[in-house]
Amino acid sequence: MNWISTFLKSSIGKKLLMGLTGLFLCTFLIVHLTGNLQLLKHDGGLAFNTYAVFMTTNPLIKFVSYGLYAIILFHAFWGLYLVAQNRKARPVQYAAYDGKANSKWSSRWMGVLGTIILAFLVLHMWNFWAQYKFGTVPYTQYERNLATGEVSFSPFTGEIKGKMEKFVDNQSGLEITIVKDLYIVVADGFKAGWLVLIYIISMAALSFHLVHGFSSAFQTLGVNNKKYNALIQNIGVGVFGIIIPILFAIMPVYFLFLN
């Protein structure tokens, strides 16, 4: 299998890994966004918390998520390694360098943008993933009226097995869900304006990272065809550069003002 290592050691092989992992992370963003949009539902966090439990208990998802962590780390550190390598290719810098004349700002700052995103991810994981896994997260009992669909909720102080219990009380016609309440962690967390600001800045970094990154990955994969270039460019800018980061950024802002 010597050819694989030779291939991956080549400059094109190296950047192929960046491109492929980058595109994978783009698809992850869509999944993550779809899940997180549950936060905006007016159900006191029932849907979101249910989703959180599913994401952390389903064996397949768990397996995929470890892969995801690995890929995020790989994409980040491989990128930093490549930046360092590329800097070595120009040991003496120019006294005057007019990059803006020939390339887009985002394309020249991918390493910095990526580093901001990496720092953000550490913060983000600490805020929510670590709290959920290792911190003391309250439980909440949701009661959903099966006839009307109305949901009411209150803190739950007893003990349950696992993160969630769900049953239907036939007498009252209520579906009762007792669940570890990540929603409240999120809602509390975003009371802090500074954190919201960091999130917004980070989403801006993500936006610029993807404006270049998405279409760049296609170029790396060898997809450059006049017929499709505009489409790829538009998806890169429109979907990954604008829609996705804005939707992500809306959530902390939403909680900031909700509170």
Binding site: R87, A89, S107, Q219, G222, N224
Partner: peptide, 27 residues
Amino acid sequence: FGSCTNTGACSAECPKGIDLSNIARMN
């Protein structure tokens, strides 16, 4: 030489206008 990060500066500055699609083809 360093590796390509698709900034497009090369093609923009090329006096003969060699297109970026060449790099995609090489890939």
